[in-house]
């Protein structure tokens, strides 16, 4: 059975293997072991609710097969985008340039540097073994985060965002980066991306141009990629759209990829969630649901079947109860798959 749970230090090797196998860009997950274990340690603190006063929490989950113990994916949440630092985006806006006298009027798209999304709930670090991309595991890994948020809703901002990777080719050439960031950062996209995962975000503040960027001044191949997601992220986008996310005016300042936004309470997962007590049972049947326990530190989420009904308790299968570490009478939550 596939299970989503908080990452632990013993997952290090498994996560490293995953990052090597997937070519998808996961800026928030560094490949270097030291940095990666730092992330897991931060996440540990987050789940324990122990942030040592060192700023907002971040959470890293893994997708594991309980039969083989193999890891198949990671996903994460930052309780506050930017983690206490400014969270950078470009906001795509329009300025009207009009001359009544000359009968000219045009809307000029302009990119404004923005920190507006700083502090929002941020979904990040999504990586999945390509073999599972088309399985229920994909939905489980992504949506388990919303199940976790639902169980701990007072710790998260009501507005949730997800940065979707933008357009770049196999060689790492990114038209948006080449036309914008590269002119000021003096490095190629992959190097900048590497620094993003390895260094503090201070260098962003230091290097990113502060003045607005007139889109018509960019080469057409760059302006065409503004707000466009990488084909590899198509499925992620589709899932988030189904959840109730929508495209925002914000884009990633590096690759121009879109930022998707939603209100937590209106996401499909959270608006359909039910909280009841578990009644483990031999009886199996019904529809597929995401089912999670309500533990903070030992959060678990799986896909199982159940028959929804009235009453304060709900029947779940024994192996689901086992995977969730719950017994009769424990609180659980479920939301339709």
């Amino acid at each position: 059975m596939l299970l989503v749970r908080p990452s632990t230090f013993s997952d290090l090797a498994g996560i490293e293997r995953l990052l090597d196998d997937t070519d998808a860009r996961v800026t928030t997950l560094p490949k270097e072991r030291d940095k990666l274990s730092e992330k897991i340690s931060e996440s540990d603190d987050g789940f324990r609710g122990d942030t040592d006063g060192e700023g907002p929490s971040s959470f890293l989950f893994v997708l594991q097969d309980t039969d083989s113990n193999e890891l198949y994916g990671t996903s994460g949440i930052d309780a506050e985008a930017g983690c206490g630092y400014p969270f950078f985006n470009y906001r795509l806006d329009e300025i009207v340039h009009a001359s009544h006298h000359l009968n000219i009027s045009s809307k000029v798209p302009v990119l404004f540097l923005s920190h507006e999304l700083t502090g929002r709930t941020l979904l990040r670090s999504f990586t999945i073994d390509p073999a599972l991309t088309k399985s229920d595991g994909f939905d489980l890994l992504s949506r388990a985060r919303l199940m976790y948020i639902a169980a701990n809703s007072d710790r998260f901002h009501q507005e949730v965002i997800a940065e979707i990777q933008g357009i770049f080719d196999e060689k790492g050439a990114c038209p948006f980066w080449d036309a914008v960031g590269r002119k000021f950062f003096d490095m190629d996209f992959l190097t900048a991306d590497y620094y993003c995962s390895m260094k503090s975000k201070t260098f962003m503040s230091e290097l990113i141009p502060q003045h607005p960027v007139y889109v018509p001044l960019l080469p057409p191949e760059a302006s065409a990629t503004i707000g466009q997601n990488h084909p590899a992220a198509n499925r992620t986008c589709q899932l988030l759209y189904r959840e109730g996310f929508h495209r925002s005016k914000f884009i990633d300042p590096f690759d121009g990829g879109p930022v998707l936004k939603a209100q937590l309470r209106y996401t499909h997962t959270i608006s359909n969630i039910r909280f009841k007590t578990a009644r483990p049972s031999d009886v199996v049947g019904g529809m597929k649901y995401l089912i999670s326990n309500q533990s903070n530190q030992d959060f678990r989420c799986v896909i199982g079947t159940l028959v929804d009904g009235i009453g304060d308790s709900i029947r779940i299968s024994l192996d689901v109860a086992d995977a969730l570490n719950v017994q009769a009478g424990d609180d659980i939550a479920y939301s339709p798959l």
Partner: peptide, 20 residues
């Protein structure tokens, strides 16, 4: 001497020279 149109149409924000 028709300079009003300059004010109306000209970009008002600073221009990053490397983007030209």
């Amino acid at each position: 001497g028709n300079k009003v149109f300059i004010a109306e149409l000209m970009p008002k924000f600073p221009i990053h020279v490397p983007m030209l």
